[in-house]
Design a protein around this nucleic acid. Sequence first.
DNA 1: GATTACTCAAACAATTATGTTCAGGTTACC
DNA 2: GGTAACCTGAACATAATTGTTTGAGTAATC
Lengths: 198, 198
Amino acid sequence: MSEVQKERTKRADAVRNKDAIIDAALTCLSDDPGASMSEIARVAGVGRVTLYGHFADREELVGAVFARTMDRAAAELAAVDIKQDTWKCLRDLVQSSWRVLYQFNSLLAAAEPYLSAEQIRAHHDKPLARVIAVLEKGRSEGTFRTDQSLTWQGACFYSILHSAAAEIRAGRLTEDDAARVLPATIRALLIPPADPAP
Amino acid sequence: MSEVQKERTKRADAVRNKDAIIDAALTCLSDDPGASMSEIARVAGVGRVTLYGHFADREELVGAVFARTMDRAAAELAAVDIKQDTWKCLRDLVQSSWRVLYQFNSLLAAAEPYLSAEQIRAHHDKPLARVIAVLEKGRSEGTFRTDQSLTWQGACFYSILHSAAAEIRAGRLTEDDAARVLPATIRALLIPPADPAP
DNA sequence: GATTACTCAAACAATTATGTTCAGGTTACC
DNA sequence: GGTAACCTGAACATAATTGTTTGAGTAATC
C-alpha cells in the first residue's frame, strides 16, 4: 500500500488567498512584530476565519513568513556570481539584498517566541554564509581589511543595510540615494585603513 | 496668594521604590518593548499596586523611562569636550555613549504608541545634536569625508553603536573588544576615501 | 449546471494585560 | 511611641487577542 497521499489540487482562490495572507503578514510583522491576526487578515482582504483555515495558529503563520523571507534572501544572495571582481561582487550583494534583508530584525522579533535559538540561527546562517564568503574572498585577495573579525564585519554589513531601510521608511533618504550611498559606505567599512590610527 | 504647593518630603522608601521601578522598567523595556507592568513590578521587587501608586498608567511610566534615558544620553554627550582633537572627540563620544544610546531602539518602540512623532523627534534630536556637531567640526577641518549627507552619517553612527550592543548581548563580542573595534569602525566610516571608487 | 471546496460574519470560550478598589499590615518619620 | 504615609496580596471590572464553532453563502472546478 502506497503511503503517497493523493494531492488534491487546491482551488485557485485558496492559493491566492494563502499568498495574500503571507504577503500581508510580511508587511504587518515588518512594521510591528506584535501585529494581531485580525490586522493581518484585514490587510490581506480576507476574513479572520479564512486565515485560520490556512494556518492553524499564529506560530504556523509566523513560521511560514519567516521561512519564506529567509529562503528568498538566500536565493537572492546565492544568485550573486562570486567569481567576478570582489568589489563588483559586494555591490551586487548589497544591491540584490538590502530590500529583503532589512526586514530581518522585526521579523526575528516576531518569530523569537516560537522558534528555538538553534532554528533561528540555522535560518540566519544561510543568507549570512554568502556574505561571509565574499568577505573571505576579499581578505584572501588582500582587498579587505583583516584587523577586525568576520563576525563583526558581517554584523556591520547587516546593520548598515537595515539603517538604510529605516532612513527610507522615515523619509530621510530616497531609494536612489540609498543605491548610491550604500556601496560607498560598505566599501569604507571594508577597505584597509590607509594611515595608522592616531 | 502664592501658587507654590508645599512640597511634602516624600518618604525614603517611596523614592527608593520609584527609582527601582524606573530602573526595572529600563531593563525590561530594553529587552522587550512589550514587557508587562507585572513583569516590571516583579523585577523591581515591588507589588503591582505600588507601581500604580507611583505611575498612573503605562504611558506615564514609559514616558518617565524614555525621558530619563534621553536626558542621560544628552548629558553624557554634552560632557564631551568638543574643543579637543576631532578624532579624540569622536572616540570620547563613542566611549561615553554607546552603552546608553543602544537602548534607543527598543525604548523607542515602547514609547511610540504614546508619544507623538514630534515629541519623539524632540527627544531624539537632543542627543543627536552633539554627534552632528562633531561631524560638522570634522568636516570643516577637512578631517571627515563630505560626499555623504550628515543625516546618513549620523544614522550610521547610531547603527554601528547599536550593532555592537547587540553583538555583546548575543555573546559574540566582549566589551573590551567593542571598546577597541568601535572607534576603528566609526573612523572608517568618516575618513575621506583615499583612492577613487572603482 | 451540479458539486464541493472555500469563504464569511457572528458568536463563543479561554487567556492575558490593564487599571482600580479594599482591608490589613509595615515602617519611616516627628 | 503614635501617626500618617506607604506597601501588600487578593479580588474585581474591562478590554483585547487568540483560536474554535456554526450555519449559510459563493464560486471554482468537473
